[in-house]
Design a protein around this nucleic acid. Structure first.
Lengths: 157, 157
DNA sequence: GCCTTCCTGCAAGACGCTTGCAACAAGCCT
DNA sequence: AGGCTTGTTGCAAGCGTCTTGCAGGAAGGC
């Protein structure tokens, strides 16, 4: 957080109340969140939220991911990098370390020559539960909403 | 095409001039096309294009894919099914038989349990050319536009 | 040729942003 | 502490991609 402020200052940027609020929200969030959601939660204007989040992306502090048809969702840029898998049926999103998908990347490379990334546009399909024909399960539901329903035990294997 | 008309009639649907135009355009297209593009090309109202294309999807005749931030692009549902890989840098889109990505699907299944599909949301990354650092190349360019720039020899790895 | 019902065009609205602009306030300077 | 510069903000308008309500129009069965 102090690092962020430093990076911001180094660019001639200013730390306003709005920016602090948005940053704290990003640090506190347990998953990607929409700009609208952040804006509303702190009485910040949506335009400011979008502008600030873009600024934070330029700084390399934040990233956004496009899940399904909904709004873009923002999160801090973590180390190691994260990538996403989204379920079309129950809207669950698995968040995994990018390294977990290196084998997938290799398979794509050999099938197509493409060098894939799933940090901005996720892998889409059915989660294990929905693929098995089980009901949508855990409160996720069809909200196409403001934040991701991370079932945090995503992939461990 | 006759099959389509039959399916349509079987549902109590009617074959209007607009529907015929849109259908013929889909049959003639060499890649996914936006609803706007189809509408404009035949003087059909965009609302009608969207409604008709959705109808054709219900019939199982058409599908749409979301490439990048641009509009959804429509194409006939083919047999065998097709899946897509999009390049973030040069906007090239590779269209491959779904079977070509079965290995990728297997890798994803074993890494995450997800059963992936790339027919609605493609794999996103860098095409072989861009990954190699070569310039954006072939007329593709950044048009985010009306139809896909299929480099037709897509994958044959 | 008629009549029913499906379709169409138009207009307006929803949703997710993006942009122009005038007022505001960080933070540097003294 | 008071000024001053210039980065930021809120508001309002605008844009792209659809979606929806509605009244008129036309397929296609009879």
């Amino acid at each position: 957080m102090d690092d962020v402020v430093a990076a911001l200052r180094a660019r001639g940027g200013r730390l306003t109340a709005q920016r602090r609020a948005l940053l704290e929200a990003l640090f506190a969030a347990d998953g990607p969140v929409s700009a609208e959601h952040l804006a509303r939660a702190f009485g910040v204007d949506p335009a400011t939220a979008y502008r600030t989040l873009e600024y934070l992306q330029d700084l390399g502090v934040a990233r956004h991911v496009h899940i399904g048809h909904g709004p873009g969702l923002y999160a801090l840029a973590t180390e190691p990098a994260r990538e996403y898998l989204a379920c079309e049926r129950c809207d669950a999103v698995a968040i995994v370390d990018a390294a977990a998908l290196d084998g997938v990347r290799a398979a794509i490379r050999s099938a197509s020559g493409y060098e894939a990334r799933f940090d901005h546009f996720p892998i889409v399909g059915l989660c294990a539960s929905c693929a098995a024909g089980r009901p949508p399960a855990h409160g996720a539901a069809h909200s196409h909403g403001d934040h991701v329903h991370t079932h945090p035990h995503g992939h461990e294997h």
